[in-house]
Design a protein around this nucleic acid. Structure first.
Lengths: 253, 253
DNA sequence: TGTAAACTGTGTGCCAGCGCACAGAACTGT
DNA sequence: ACAGTTCTGTGCGCTGGCACACAGTTTACA
């Protein structure tokens, strides 16, 4: 795990992106949702660190020592089967936090989490989070709401896995990804996406080919540009919208 | 919704079942897990009601007015797609409660819940639950732990949907069901199970036929008996065990 | 600049599960 | 006792996604 970290006392300046509406280093929706006292309290304990693609953030069933608030990075929560197959059950970006088991007081979870898109993230020691949860009803409420967002996400993943085609799932995955990122560009191979979706690389190649032909995306060897966001939304299943709606309903702003 | 209810001040006597280890009206694991004060506080507000198979307990996106603590009944949490397909994401029995959105302070969820197996259940007004959550850290902790159990269940459903055969999923579903019931007998048609699993009825017929041939279960027209529980566990995927393990780890007893 | 490595495109055969259709079996109620 | 209903068994053709194989293309770096 990366440990090159720099203490910060002031969060970074906002950077805008009209395409996705992303507002960068205003940073993270959970941090933004905290009230003044709580925020003032965690601020000295927040450390800006870098995540690298593929890094394991929390091992399965291992104690979670830190919570992470992504800024422009993206992680996914993954279940691993005994036969080596894995299944991404949720994605955590700048509107959430990683390390919910600290909140639920369970120390660990049977899933592991890993970095999908490299970038910055604020790190917070478990003990600090725990104290804040203990003391602040406002913060508890915020985390409970986020918990339900995650619920919705995981449930919708289950449904999507059951009923929807690779084509639809890919569209959904791309939309979720760029929603959390500062621009409409992704640095990922088809192999990596296939692994996230729990499908074959060839399946992704075929689906991505179709999306490219329809001018919705453009890609080359590890780079993906989303060209037509509304078009992609149209192509994808309702699972995306359901999660989006619930996120907007439950999280501040 | 059923409203024939009788106020109770003393919970029903335990009834044993050596086959599954079920201990009946000692009743519900969440209620049992509460401390003395909390329990004394909710007791006068608990109402024993009957659930009927197929009843909708909470509509999707509707305000949840009551929480329910199943005794010998079973409900499932289901996501409904626009095209009418549905997907069961979790099952709630005597080791959990229905109505988590009261706890998360979100009022409603995009999923609905419905009764799979008829039986008794303790009902509690949302306001009472909310007050208790507000006042009791012990109770909050209990519900947070249960929240993570549900997380695990939903995540494992997603994984199971992606990778496992109808045969394995049926075995899993039967095990989960009888784990929550007083005996090894279920009153369900293959059609109903198919609907829960989100597969065709014919698929269930075929899988159930195989399980019966292997003497693991026995069924006739709407009745299913589990004959060989260990055998069934052997037949089913790891998803069952993962959820079971996490439940035992996180919930008292 | 050339070679190895990584990534993407395409083809073939296979299988689980689907949709549909229908037959037979088992209950229900009058 | 019988008619109607509900539940279960089975067959058929279809399709999405799988496993495997291999060719072509881009990139990195020696």
């Amino acid at each position: 795990m990366n440990s090159s970290a720099s203490r910060v006392s002031v969060l970074r300046e906002p950077i805008g992106n009209p395409y996705t509406g992303f507002r960068g280093a205003e940073c993270n929706r959970i941090l933004r949702g905290m009230n003044h006292q709580d925020y003032a309290r965690v601020l000295p304990h927040l450390t800006l660190v870098e995540w690298h693609r593929g890094e394991i953030i929390h091992e399965s069933c291992a104690v979670q020592r830190y919570a992470y608030f992504p800024v422009d990075s993206l992680a996914s929560i993954v279940l691993l089967l005994e036969d080596g197959h894995s299944c991404e059950i949720a994605v955590v970006g700048n509107d959430g936090l990683l390390g919910l088991s600290i909140f639920t007081q369970t120390e660990s979870m049977p899933s592991y989490s890993t970095v999908q898109v490299a970038g910055s993230v604020y790190r917070l020691k478990a003990a600090v989070l725990r104290e804040l949860v203990h003391d602040s009803e406002h913060f508890r409420s915020l985390l409970l709401r986020y918990t339900q967002v995650l619920f919705t996400q995981i449930g919708q993943s289950a449904t999507c896995n059951r009923y929807h085609t690779i084509h639809q799932q890919l569209a959904r995955w791309l939309l979720i990804a760029i929603d959390h990122l500062p621009d409409n560009h992704l640095e990922l191979t088809q192999e990596q996406i296939a692994h996230s979706l729990g499908v074959r690389r060839e399946g992704v190649t075929e689906a991505a080919g179709r999306l490219q032909k329809a001018k919705l995306i453009e890609y080359r060897r590890g780079h993906i540009h989303v060209l037509d966001r509304p078009g992609l939304e149209h192509e994808c299943c309702e699972c995306y919208r359901t999660v989006k709606r619930e996120t907007e309903r439950l999280l501040p702003e």
